[in-house]
Amino acid sequence: MKKEYQFKLVEGQFAPSEAGKVLFSLINSKINYHNLEIFSNQIRFDEEIPHSKIRIKTLLEASEYIKELIKEASSTDMELKIGSVIQIVLTPKIKTEMDV
């Protein structure tokens, strides 16, 4: 049986500077997480994590795009309406060779 949960992570209308604080805080937290994963795997297993490197690249691209949106909102006296829902689904673990 699959269990599913949803939580509102961010919801509201923000001035450009406040929107930047909220969004860049989330993005930087994710980038830091992936950098730590890369570092940890290199130290413990002398391996790279391609997924984390790809995610960091994607997050940096999103960050640049958001900077442009914030700049546009500031120059046109607009606010940013942000909504973010996190969805969590409890699912059975997929067994790998390491689990056997």
Rank of each mutant, 00 (worst) to 15 (best):
M1W: 05
K3N: 10
Q6A: 10
K8E: 13
V10D: 03
F14R: 02
A15T: 06
S17F: 10
S17H: 11
E18S: 09
G20P: 08
K21L: 13
V22A: 00
V22R: 06
F24W: 09
L26G: 01
L26M: 05
I27E: 14
N28V: 07
N28K: 07
S29T: 09
N32F: 08
H34Q: 04
L36N: 11
L36E: 13
E37Y: 04
I38S: 00
F39G: 14
F39L: 15
R44C: 07
F45G: 03
D46K: 14
D46I: 00
E48H: 02
P50K: 07
H51S: 12
S52T: 03
K53N: 06
R55C: 10
R55F: 01
R55I: 07
I56W: 09
E61W: 03
S63A: 12
S63F: 06
E64H: 12
I66D: 03
E68D: 15
K71S: 06
A73C: 01
A73P: 04
S74P: 09
S75N: 15
S75T: 13
S75I: 12
T76R: 15
D77Y: 12
E79V: 14
L80R: 04
G83T: 11
V85G: 00
I86W: 11
Q87E: 15
I88Y: 13
I88C: 11
I88S: 11
T91N: 10
K95V: 07
T96V: 11
E97S: 11
M98E: 11
V100Q: 14
V100K: 15
